[in-house]
């Protein structure tokens, strides 16, 4: 059991994703993958494995679509 919660969270807009896979390549902790499922347009869109995101935001910059990815960070208690 992990003692520390994940620092970040990544959200995909599967309607914008074209399945290029650059975010999967870019992700430092390797917590992204291309889905087995196809989206409405026929792309295997990227998805989050569900754990391990650090909130670094690299995937956001690597993604060519304006709103394909949003990254969140856990608020640190003061």
């Amino acid at each position: 059991m992990t003692s520390k919660p994940d620092r970040g969270l990544v959200e995909f807009n599967s309607e914008e994703c074209k399945g290029c896979g650059l975010c999967v390549e870019a992700c430092p902790p390797k917590v992204l993958r291309l889905s087995e499922q196809l989206n409405h347009y026929g792309y295997h869109t990227a998805e989050y494995l569900g754990a391990g995101c650090t909130g670094c935001g690299i995937c956001f910059f690597a993604c060519p679509e304006p709103g394909g990815i949003a990254v969140l960070r856990r608020e640190v208690a003061a």
Binding site: G57, E65, V71, E75
Partner: peptide, 28 residues
């Protein structure tokens, strides 16, 4: 779970919808 705040999201200076044609207005 704790709370998260958005740190990286769709830049404001993009249009909300891309009205180049009648369909696929959400992607480039």
């Amino acid at each position: 779970m704790g709370s998260f705040t958005l740190t990286h999201e769709r830049p404001d200076c993009f249009y909300d919808r891309f009205e180049r044609k009648s369909e696929l207005q959400h992607q480039t």
